[in-house]
């Protein structure tokens, strides 16, 4: 694991995430949201979980970002720009960040470097998914189907 790559990815991800949270134009924020997930996926690559990184790109950029962008288009007549910004959220976020960082830095037992690990192959993940994680997998499939149908029912136009 390379610390140069790590710093680069961390700065990229956090900058894109901050842009997504604060940019005034909705569309720009949605696109930087997608960018933040590219950064996050590359940090997963760095951690040796390539499959999860690819799944993240697939799900978030291929599906969720497109969904968000479409929703912005469909609700465009409302506000092109987000006007209200509640400054009350800033101290809370900073406090959460400060508190968590303080406790992370205080905990000495997690100041460790990564142990050596044989590469995690897709085959191992597939085997795990199909043996010990079959039930969660089926439940997630059911959940996704239910979410699909629910979303459709929510947005379907009622005939008058």
């Amino acid at each position: 694991m390379n610390s140069g790559a790590f710093i680069l990815i961390a700065i990229f991800t956090l900058a894109a995430a901050l842009a997504a949270a604060t940019l005034r134009k909705l569309m720009h924020a949605a696109l930087s949201f997608a960018l933040a997930f590219v950064g996050l996926a590359s940090s997963f690559f760095l951690l040796g979980a390539e499959f999860v990184g690819l799944a993240l790109v697939f799900v978030y950029i291929g599906a969720v970002a497109v969904l968000i962008v479409f929703t912005i288009l469909l609700t465009r007549r409302d506000v092109e720009k987000d006007r209200g910004f509640n400054w009350g959220g800033v101290p809370i976020a900073v406090a959460v960040f400060g508190g968590l960082t303080w406790s992370i830095l205080k905990t000495q037992s997690i100041a460790i470097v990564a142990p050596r690990m044989p590469a995690l192959t897709v085959k191992q993940i597939g085997a795990a998914l199909m043996t010990s994680y079959v039930w969660p997998l089926q439940c997630v499939g059911l959940l996704l189907t239910a979410a699909l149908i629910g979303a459709l029912i929510l947005v379907i136009e009622e005939k008058r």
């Binding site: 569309m27 696109l31 499959f51 690819l54 790109v57 291929g62 599906a63 962008v69 590469a119 192959t121």
Partner: peptide
Amino acid sequence: DGGILFFFAVGSTTELAVFMAGW
């Protein structure tokens, strides 16, 4: 290791790019 998945994951980015062009 997941080359085919990589191909499709990268390919799915195109949708967002096309949308960016249109918007």
